[in-house]
Write a protein that binds this DNA or RNA. Sequence first.
DNA 1: ATCCCGCGTG
DNA 2: CACGCGGGAT
Length: 323
Amino acid sequence: MSESDGDGGAGADTDGGEEWTLPDDLESVQEALIAWYEGDHREFPWRRTDDPYEILVSEVMSQQTQLDRVVSAWEAFLERWPTTAELADADRADVVGFWTDHSLGYNNRAKYLHEAAAQVETEYDGEFPTEPDELQELMGVGPYTANAVASFAFNNGDAVVDTNVKRVTYRTFSIPDDDAAFESAANDLMPDGESRVWNNAIMELGGVACTQTPRCDEVGCPWREWCGAYASGDFTAPDVPTQPSFEGSRRQFRGRVIGTLREYDELELDTLGHRIRVDYAPGGEYGREWLTGLLTDLEDDGLVDIDDPESGAEDELVARLRR
DNA sequence: ATCCCGCGTG
DNA sequence: CACGCGGGAT
């Protein structure tokens, strides 16, 4: 109904955009996937709620962490902060501390979640908006998360496009490795008004069947009869940019700073330095200068405060988690 | 080593 | 548009 009904790819090939088409019997394609998903799928607790806050928490956690590890963190988080009102009232340091305690990584996202809860309270009167465009106004909520929340909470989303959906559509229907093409194809595939089950189903397909090393027959992939990769045996997938190594990285030391301040409340800078790396030496290669660089970045991110000490007349600076 | 349901900022 | 952002599991 929106654009390019059924016949896929932007016809004009002027800017190098490649041609692609979806099968004629889209309805069969759709029914096959939904039947496969409803027949059997992994049971995650967030698939049994339609509370937008609970969904949002699960989505933010899932962006960075394997789903199996998210389950216990999600349950503990919602037990501690069951509503946006309660999360908004929490100290940021406690939310970031929770994130670290549960090894959820990327502490910025704890801050985003905390801020999003405050936005819901102050800007939306405690009620989540239901449209993807409005949801995207929330801190830390981009196009993917907005459609996920709109879909799973309100059955009111567009097709989600994540790395799973890209891989599945690239292989099955030979959609070119191009974001606009993926988005268009994903939306053409999705049956109108069924974003909740559809987005769950296509991501489940990417998660258990159309994996890096595919398991088409083992899990009975419902799209084998339409799948270009299954026919050709070429299961190449779009490149996902590989991360620089973590060991010894700046990221690793940021994580140690947060974890250490979580444990000690407030620490003088050199003490903190020694805690986070054994080769810390105030005047050395990794010393005061290196540490303050790290800390000012964390301060700019809103995660850490650098202050004069509360007591005493000393001028040694201390660091602590921002409340 | 590589993977894992993106996002905000410069 | 490129870049930085954690860390457990395998």
